[in-house]
Amino acid sequence: MAWIFLVVSGFFETIWAAALSQSKGFSRPVPSIVFAVALVISMGGLALALRELPVGTAYAVWVGIGAVGTAAYGMAVLGEPATTARLLCLVAIVAGVAGLKILH
């Protein structure tokens, strides 16, 4: 169950990061509210996962999911460049996160 909490909270990290960008410095209310709600859910899920998982592994997986998700969002929705080098770096992050899960 801890891994489920961790993965879901990692996805919510992507949501809060995207909402933070869209809030334009908290000047837009709806994205600011989405940011706050997603942040609480994301941190809460990480806290629940840390009841059973080591902090180093859990945090690295949580950040990895959030980083890859946020970068993918930027490329798919915001028109950020999806170069081969950037995609290879994201694959490296995914491989590292998968390695941490396998070695746990």
Score class of each variant (00 low, 15 high):
residue 1 M to R: 04
residue 1 M to V: 03
residue 1 M to Q: 01
residue 3 W to C: 00
residue 4 I to N: 08
residue 5 F to E: 02
residue 7 V to P: 02
residue 7 V to C: 02
residue 9 S to I: 04
residue 9 S to W: 03
residue 13 E to T: 11
residue 14 T to Y: 02
residue 15 I to V: 15
residue 15 I to E: 00
residue 19 A to M: 04
residue 20 L to R: 01
residue 24 K to Y: 14
residue 25 G to Q: 14
residue 27 S to C: 10
residue 32 S to W: 09
residue 33 I to C: 12
residue 39 L to P: 06
residue 42 S to W: 02
residue 43 M to I: 14
residue 44 G to I: 00
residue 46 L to Y: 01
residue 47 A to I: 13
residue 48 L to H: 05
residue 49 A to W: 08
residue 50 L to P: 00
residue 51 R to I: 00
residue 55 V to A: 12
residue 57 T to W: 06
residue 58 A to N: 08
residue 59 Y to D: 14
residue 68 V to A: 14
residue 69 G to A: 08
residue 71 A to S: 15
residue 71 A to R: 09
residue 72 A to W: 05
residue 74 G to D: 07
residue 75 M to E: 13
residue 77 V to R: 09
residue 78 L to V: 10
residue 80 E to W: 12
residue 82 A to C: 09
residue 84 T to H: 08
residue 87 L to V: 12
residue 88 L to Q: 08
residue 88 L to T: 11
residue 89 C to W: 03
residue 91 V to D: 02
residue 92 A to R: 09
residue 92 A to Y: 10
residue 94 V to Q: 01
residue 94 V to Y: 01
residue 96 G to H: 09
residue 97 V to M: 08
residue 98 A to V: 13
residue 98 A to D: 07
residue 99 G to T: 04
residue 100 L to F: 06
residue 103 L to T: 15
residue 103 L to D: 15
residue 103 L to N: 14
residue 103 L to H: 11
